[in-house]
Design a protein around this nucleic acid. Structure first.
Length: 380
RNA sequence: GGAGGGAUAGCGAAGUGGCCAAACGCAACGGACUGUAAAUCCGUCCUCUUUCGAGUUCGAAGGUUCAAAUCCUUCUCCCUCCA
C-alpha cells in the first residue's frame, strides 16, 4: 500500500544514531526531529495559526474525543475538514481518544468491543470503538490519525498489561480495516506495554507486522521517571522500522526531547509548554523560569536572552510577570509563544547537531546551562 | 442636637461566654503541571520555632467571670436616618 505519510531518513548522527529525516504529508514536508504543539480543541490554546506558523510550527496535534463531542466531527467535515475549519494549512495529527479513556479513568469500562465512558461535559454515556475512532478521524481529516489504544498506567500489573496490549493489537487491526481514506490520511499504530520489556517488544512486533504509516510509543510520561522511560526507549526503538516515523507521545521536557532523539525518536507532542505558559512558567536556555515569582517584579531583562521569539524580543520579565499576576490574556499568549518557540528551536538545534555529528556536545552544552542535575528527575 | 447601626488578621467578611489564633473569599507568597475535563490544582499566609509548642491578638482603656472577639462601663472613630 502507498502511504500518504512517508518518512525519509536523511542521516544518522555518527555517535548516537539519532535520526535526521523528513516527514512527508499531504500538507507539507517537515524536518524531523520535530516537536508538535497540542491543539486539542482545534486550537493551540492562546495561539493563532499565524503565530504558530511564525514560530516554525509544522504539524500540530488535535483530538478526536474532544472534537467528536464538540462541535462534532460531522460539523467539521461539513466545514471542509479540520484544516479548513481552523485555518491551518500545515500538517495535523489527531489523537485517537485512547488517552482520554485513560485520563477520564473514574468512569470507564473497557470491553473487547470498545470503551464505555462518560462525557466530561455532561456525564452522558459514550461508547468509543476502534472503528468509531477511525471514522471520526476520517471525518476530521487530519494528515496523520492514530489507532485507538488503551493507555494503562506505567506500573499496571504484568497480567493486565499483557491482556491490554493484546487487545490494543486487535483494536489496531480493526482500525486498519476501518480506515477508508488512505489517499490523504496515514494511520499510526501505538506501542504499549508499560515498563515490561518483553511486552513492549511483543507489542512492537505485533504492530510492525501490520502496515501502519508510522509507529507511536505510548504509555510513557505518565508518571514514571525519565530513567524508566529512557530504558524503554533503549530497547524499543531498535524494534521499530527504519523507514517509518517514530512518535513518542506526550513528551515535552527539553531533557526528555534530547534524550529521546538520541534514542531514535523522530516526533513529539506535549501540552507542557502551553500549559505551563498559562500557569506562569517558562522554559528558557537558562532553565525553568517561574515568571510569577516575586523576584521578577523589577526584572527588565528578556525572558530568555538567547531566544528569538517575539516575546523575548519585545517584552521584559517584569512586564510578563505583571500580565500573569493580573491574569491578563496577553501574558498567557506571550508565554505560550515563547515556550513553543523554545521547543521548536531546540529541535532545530538538535537537527543541526545531528547534521554536524555533534549531538552529544550539544547536549552537554545545553544541560550545562539549562541545569541537568535537577532534584527531581521529572522536573523539566 | 436627637435616634439607631458599626469597628475582627493586608483587604472583604463570619463568629456574639469555653470546641477561637479566629470559618470563608480575595490579595500575597511558594509549589505542581508530560498523547489538555487545566487562564487549573495544591500548600503557606499574627509572631517565634523544622516539628512539638510558646507568645501576643478581634478600635482603646477598665471591669465581670474559672474562662471574653463574644457580657458591662467609659472613651475614640465611622455610617444611616430625623432635626
Amino acid at each position: 500500500m502507498e502511504h500518504p505519510i512517508k518518512y525519509h531518513l536523511t542521516k544518522k548522527e555518527k555517535h548516537t544514531g539519532a535520526r535526521l529525516g523528513k516527514l512527508e504529508t499531504p500538507h507539507g514536508t517537515f524536518e524531523t526531529p520535530m516537536f508538535m504543539p497540542v491543539g486539542t480543541q482545534a486550537t493551540v490554546k492562546a495561539m493563532s495559526p499565524e503565530e504558530l506558523k511564525k514560530i516554525g510550527s509544522g504539524v500540530i496535534l488535535s483530538n478526536t474525543y474532544h472534537l467528536w463531542l464538540r462541535p462534532g466531527s460531522d460539523l467539521i467535515e461539513e466545514a471542509g475538514g479540520l484544516h479548513k475549519f481552523m485555518n491551518w494549512d500545515q500538517g495535523i495529527l489527531t489523537d485517537s481518544g485512547g488517552f482520554q479513556v485513560f485520563s477520564l479513568a473514574d468512569s470507564r469500562e473497557i470491553t473487547e468491543e470498545g470503551v464505555h465512558f462518560r462525557s466530561h461535559l455532561d456525564g452522558s454515556k459514550l461508547f468509543l470503538t476502534p472503528e468509531k475512532s477511525v471514522q471520526i478521524q476520517n471525518e476530521l481529516g487530519a494528515d496523520i490519525i492514530m489507532s485507538f489504544d488503551e493507555c494503562p498506567p506505567f506500573d499496571e500489573s504484568y497480567d493486565y498489561m499483557k491482556k491490554s496490549i493484546e487487545r490494543t493489537t486487535r483494536w489496531a487491526e480493526r482500525g486498519l480495516e476501518a480506515h477508508n481514506n488512505w489517499d490523504k490520511q496515514g494511520l499510526f499504530g501505538i506501542v504499549q506495554g508499560g515498563g515490561y520489556k518483553d511486552l513492549r517488544l511483543q507489542h512492537a512486533r505485533d504492530l510492525t507486522s501490520m502496515d501502519f504509516s508510522g509507529y507511536s510509543i505510548g504509555g510513557l510520561s505518565v508518571g514514571e521517571t525519565h530513567e524508566e522511560m529512557y530504558e524503554v526507549l533503549d530497547y524499543l526503538t531498535p524494534e521499530l522500522p527504519e523507514d517509518k516515523t517514530r512518535y513518542l507521545m506526550g513528551v515535552g521536557t527539553p531533557a526528555a526531547l534530547i534524550e529521546s532523539v538520541i534514542r531514535g525518536v523522530d516526533i513529539f507532542d506535549c501540552v507542557l509548554p502551553t500549559r505551563i505558559a498559562r500557569n506562569g512558567a517558562a522554559m528558557t536556555s537558562q532553565g525553568r523560569v517561574v515568571i510569577k515569582n516575586a523576584k521578577f517584579a523589577r526584572d527588565w531583562s528578556p525572558l530568555d536572552p538567547k531566544c528569538d521569539c517575539d516575546t523575548c524580543q519585545n517584552y521584559s520579565k517584569g512586564y510578563l510577570r505583571h500580565l500573569i499576576k493580573t491574569n491578563e490574556i496577553l501574558g498567557m499568549r506571550l508565554l505560550s509563544i515563547h515556550n513553543l518557540r523554545f521547543l521548536i528551536r531546540l529541535m532545530e538545534q538538535v537537527r543541526e547537531a545531528i547534521r554536524e555529528d555533534n549531538l552529544l556536545e550539544f547536549k552537554e552544552a545545553f544541560f550545562e546551562e539549562y541545569g541537568y542535575n535537577e532534584p527531581n528527575a521529572r522536573t523539566f
